[in-house]
């Protein structure tokens, strides 16, 4: 689900448009914390897409919690 590289850190392999994978990843993560309301973009409340520790990139996101 994640790919770690030296430049970007821990990159989510499923990109920006896989809400099921993002929800699964967040459900398995003790570090999930919801972002501010205006940054919530996924319909699944617990989702890496809604996590305050995600950092969006052009194609996906990186996890800043487990960098």
């Amino acid at each position: 689900m994640w790919f770690v590289n030296r430049k970007e850190g821990r990159v989510f392999l499923h990109g920006k448009d896989d809400p099921v994978a993002a929800a699964d990843a967040a459900a398995a993560c003790a570090g999930f914390r919801p972002d501010a309301e205006e940054e919530i973009v996924a319909d699944e409340p617990v989702s890496c897409y809604n996590c305050r520790y995600r950092r969006w990139s052009a194609d996906s996101l990186t996890c800043q919690k487990h960098a």
């Binding site: 940054e39 995600r54 052009a58």
Partner: peptide, 15 residues
């Protein structure tokens, strides 16, 4: 814009 050359915390949005 979300781009490697733009420094931002997590989403690069303004209010």
């Amino acid at each position: 814009l979300v781009h490697p050359d733009v420094p931002y915390t997590s989403h690069n949005s303004s209010m």
